[in-house]
Design a protein around this nucleic acid. Structure first.
Lengths: 232, 232
DNA sequence: CCTCACCTATTGGTGACACCATTATGCCGT
DNA sequence: ACGGCATAATGGTGTCACCAATAGGTGAGG
């Protein structure tokens, strides 16, 4: 897959703003810069086109599109934007989406999760509490548990669209930690809420699961600041 | 763009189940069937790969992936699946997503919408009521207004991720009507709720907008049946 | 019957070519 | 001098022939 590095580089350049809307590229230019043939450059361009980042036409070259044409829900675009400037703003937008989706997903999971998943959720929440109360709430292990719990919930919601958003949630949680936006040690209320979600799902109480998850996400959003999510 | 018809046809075939997971294709086969060169077939395949529908490797050909690898949030995939069998199930999944997102989007719009948008929302809701009470709630004009109102709300939420979901909401609303899942004439409560959302946004009352939008989506979901959204 | 080596099918990648749409240039007429 | 139309240059679109790499089947041999 020779086109992957080209796709990555151009994707990051565009989403990062280094190639602003209206900028033009040519296949020969891309080929020359990356040392690939026109065919490979064309393939990378097609992928970019599929993501809504560029549009190509005869004589005009490959034109970078304004950001409101981008497939901002595509995991690749999300990852690129989280790695570039404006990641804080992107994180706010994503957190708002989490705020919308996760409570309902938790409610659905309470209805549809398998017995195994219910057990695992409870076990995960318990381990989170143990780690958190042992003062290890800032490590990678705690982060992994946090992600696992949220991902399990999304994937057990019985709604494939929510499942598809599980990756997004994972990257948001991880991004928040690695950007230093987490409290150094998880607050007791957060631990309580995570455990409450797990227990509510385990006993099939959708309303309680939804409420507890809403508490979690509200807290997350509060930590990110109340301002409206920007466009960057 | 010679590859478009190929992409369309194969995309629909895969998402529709005519090409089940594990089925294999070859570039030459695609080229022969559609009368295009291998290059074009390869480009179509790349796009399909970008959508998570297939994976290609030397000697193994192009393998159709199981549906949990699909980019189910991509507008193209959504459209294809809505056009194929299992559209009712797909509509349920999408409606669940609407249920999650639209209330929060309405709340955000109440904070962030421009004065022009607020006016247009109110005017749109008013025209919807007029049409509905005139017995024309089943026509294309009413549908267009309905879509316009929801789209305006999503796009004015100030969150680009919600904006990206506006297309999805539009296609869901339109699909629901054209699949005959709408009541022949809109119920008075629906008209009330739409107007309530518009007025709440107009006066900047986020909580009321959220509550009214939740009423709308709950009603929609009720009409689709309460069963869990399937996978097809 | 199992194992291993080889063979072949099929994708990955390249370069050259013809084609065509679009844009810009420049000419000509008013 | 200005505006409209013809023409040329530019750069994507599509095809072809070719080579490299690889994976999976096949057949021979133990």
């Amino acid at each position: 897959m020779l086109h992957s590095p080209v796709l990555e580089a151009l994707g990051r350049r565009i989403t990062g703003g280094a190639l602003p809307a209206g900028a033009t590229l040519t296949l020969d230019g891309i080929g020359a810069e990356f040392g690939v043939s026109r065919t490979v450059a064309r393939e990378a361009m097609r992928l970019l086109e599929g993501l809504g980042l560029v549009r190509s036409g005869p004589r005009v070259g490959i034109v970078v599109l304004p950001h409101d044409a981008w497939n901002v829900l595509d995991p690749r675009v999300i990852e690129w934007r989280l790695a570039g400037p404006g990641r804080a703003s992107q994180l706010r937008s994503l957190t708002e989406l989490r705020q919308a989706v996760e409570p309902l997903a938790a409610s659905c999971a309470a209805r549809g999760a398998t017995a195994a998943v219910r057990d695992e959720l409870v076990a995960t929440a318990r381990r989170m509490r143990e780690l958190g109360e042992a003062g290890k709430g800032d490590g990678e292990e705690f982060l992994a548990l946090d992600i696992q719990l949220h991902e399990l919930l999304m994937r057990s919601s019985g709604n494939e669209l929510f499942s598809a958003l599980a990756d997004v949630v994972a990257v948001v949680i991880s991004g928040r930690t690695h950007l230093g936006l987490m409290p150094a040690y998880p607050e007791p209320e957060a631990l309580d809420a995570h455990e409450a979600v797990a227990l509510a799902v385990a006993r099939g109480d959708g309303a309680a699961a939804e409420e507890a998850m809403a508490r979690i996400v509200r807290e997350v959003r509060g930590a990110l600041g109340e301002g409206p999510a920007g466009k960057g």
